[in-house]
Design a protein around this nucleic acid. Structure first.
Lengths: 184, 184
DNA sequence: CAACTGGGATGACGATCATAATCTAAATTT
DNA sequence: AAATTTAGATTATGATCGTCATCCCAGTTG
């Protein structure tokens, strides 16, 4: 049955938000339209009334995920003391973040799959990355190159820590990288 | 028709090697048994005579991919001059490596998908990572923590550079991280 | 040489995939 | 109030998924 305009818009937004978490948790290929719609409390039939294709949803969901990540960074940075990068690193490389991929970092969860997808998805990463680098630059003031090194190290460390089977090895990866300004 | 023992073993090894490249290029979920067997010059029917499941092949292919990566690192390290980490970083973050995922780094290609899979796959990453860290330690002598930071930065940088749409941004990510011993 | 074995091809299994046509009923517009 | 529009449910499409039963025939073994 038909919904009101505002209800429909709310449903659409809920689908995007659900997708942004499901994709981060199971990968773009790991979640189908039917499962996704069900997780959002709807059925597959409603999908193509709201989105042109799965690829289009992937782009929107990635934007949404990166925006949520940026908000989380802002919150951590706002609470940080005199060493904001240290605060970000310790939060980013914490056990809770390593354990919960769905609400976590989009780079660590989906960036490796991005090159296999269309431009709208990859453009979302462009925009998100520029924003994240800007946040780091504003917090540290070391310039773009230093920000790109910092971010790369965090993303790589979280990805590797999540990949390994041995929890003790994962903990060493995280702790070795939790020092924000360590060399190499 | 039946093959000789040695032919069958060669076929099996070719499947693993093909899979190791196909998985790195298209992701574990992105390539099916039929397409994979065809790429190896066989048909789907031959698959389950050689492997217990796709997941079992994924584990073997990941081991094979990581072993090939380790050999490539050894080769680069052998050719390196007085700054081996610098040589590795420049090779690892080169345009050719960023452009060819299939024969490239397994961490950047598949580590993000590993947490969604069974223990044999993830154990392959344990073993591979310990070996890579050992290679870095032997080349640099800065200890495990420094090696883990170095590797995390390389993997993160390659992943992010591949994800973005803007080639100029990708180039900045690579060059900012190509300096082996830069701070943060 | 005869008996046996097993790797590969063919084809099919049910499940799931992305996509979409059809229908319904309520929201919107006239 | 009547006419129109449309979000969502239902159901169906052809393709592809991982897995496997069956058959065939050439290696291997006796």
């Amino acid at each position: 049955m038909r919904m009101s305009r505002t209800d429909a818009a709310r449903n659409r937004e809920r689908v995007v938000r659900t997708a942004s978490e499901q994709f981060r948790e199971h990968g773009y290929d790991g979640v189908g339209i039917a499962a996704l719609m069900q997780a959002a409390g709807l059925t597959n039939g409603a999908f193509y009334k709201q989105f042109a294709s799965k690829e289009a949803l992937m782009a929107e969901a990635t934007e949404q995920a990166l925006a949520a990540n940026a908000a989380a960074w802002d919150e951590v940075l706002a609470r940080a003391g005199d060493d904001p990068l240290q605060a970000v690193a310790q939060w980013y490389l914490s056990d809770p973040h390593a354990g919960h991929r769905g609400p976590g970092c989009t780079y660590a969860a989906l960036a490796a799959e991005a090159p296999r997808h269309d431009d709208p998805v990859r453009r979302a990463f462009d925009e998100g990355l520029r924003r994240t680098v800007g946040q780091i630059e504003a917090a540290a003031g070391d310039g773009e190159e230093a920000a790109l090194r910092f971010l790369a190290r965090l993303v790589g460390a979280l990805t590797l820590a999540r990949a390994v089977s041995d929890p003790e090895l994962a903990a060493r990866i995280l702790s070795a990288n939790a020092a924000a300004d360590a060399p190499t």
